[in-house]
Simulated assay, not measured.
Amino acid sequence: MKRLMILALALLLPTPALAQEAGVPRPNDRGDFMTARVRGVAGYYNNHKWLVTDLMDGIPLNCRRTPNGEVQARLKSGATLTAIFSQGNRDAITMHNGKPWLRVRSINPVYNRDSGICYVRANVNYIVPINQDYVSDVH
């Protein structure tokens, strides 16, 4: 009887909810990111922050005016990028010749240089997503 009362009490008491940590977009087997959106508890959300990787041995990443177009800016390893999503909840990644490209803007805080809106290859050799839960905006 005592066990039954304890079990009933345990079922009636509120239990703490576990916070869900945001995920990040995952690359496919070729290392390509096919979307900049992540499924969460309340549907999909946009992953805005990305990081330029150092897999190019110090060679800056080309940010182009159009996918695979003219180079507009060169981004160094460690630069943070902000994905630019189109209106209507469209993805920031667009396909060109079978390859995904992420539409971004990067502002260098040291030199206060703005790359403008440009495109980078959406592949782990060049960029990785930053988990939104670990980013706080400073205003």
Results as ranks from 00 to 15, higher is better:
Pro67Asp: 01
Asp91Lys: 08
Leu51Asn: 03
Gly78Thr: 03
Val124Gln: 04
Arg37Pro: 02
Ala73Asn: 09
Ile117Leu: 08
Leu81Glu: 04
Val120Asp: 04
Thr35Asp: 02
Thr35Glu: 01
Gly98Val: 02
Asn62Asp: 10
Ser136Tyr: 12
Arg105Lys: 13
Pro67Val: 00
Ile130Lys: 10
Ala122Lys: 07
Ile130Pro: 00
Ile130Val: 13
Met56Gly: 11
Lys49Pro: 02
Ser115Cys: 05
Asn62Tyr: 00
Ala83Gly: 13
Lys76Arg: 15
Arg74His: 14
Val124His: 07
Val135Lys: 04
Cys63His: 04
Thr35Met: 00
Arg39Leu: 09
Asp114Leu: 09
Tyr126Pro: 09
Ser77Phe: 10
Tyr119Pro: 06
Arg74Met: 10
Gly58Phe: 14
Gly78Tyr: 14
Ile127Leu: 06
Pro100Glu: 00
Thr80Gln: 15
Asp114Ser: 10
Met56Asn: 14
Tyr126Val: 02
Pro109Lys: 04
Gly43Pro: 07
Cys118Ala: 07
Val52Asp: 01
His48Ala: 14
Arg121Trp: 04
Pro100Val: 03
Lys76Gly: 15
Asn108Trp: 02
Tyr45Trp: 11
Asn108Val: 01
Gly69Ala: 06
Tyr45Leu: 11
Gly98Thr: 03
Val52Gly: 11
Asp54Met: 04
Pro129Asp: 01
Ile130Cys: 06
Pro60Arg: 00
Val71Gln: 07
Asn131Met: 00
Val104Phe: 08
Val52Met: 04
Cys63Ala: 08
Asp57His: 15
Val128Leu: 09
Leu75Gly: 09
Asn46Ala: 14
Arg90Thr: 01
Ala92Thr: 07
Val71Trp: 09
Leu75Val: 09
Val41Cys: 05
Pro109Asn: 05
Tyr45Asn: 09
Gly88His: 09
Ala92Leu: 04
Phe33Asn: 03
Ser77Pro: 12
Met56Thr: 11
Gly69Leu: 03
Asn131Ala: 03
Arg37Gln: 06
Gln72Asp: 14
Cys118Lys: 05
Val52Glu: 03
Phe33Gln: 00
Arg103Ile: 00
His48Phe: 15
Ala36Ser: 12
Asn47Leu: 06
Pro67Glu: 00
Gln72Val: 04
Arg105His: 11
Pro60Cys: 13
Cys118Asn: 03
Tyr126Ala: 10
Pro100Ala: 02
Trp101Ala: 08
Phe85Ser: 11
Arg37Ser: 12
Asp54Lys: 12
Asn89Glu: 08
Tyr134Ser: 13
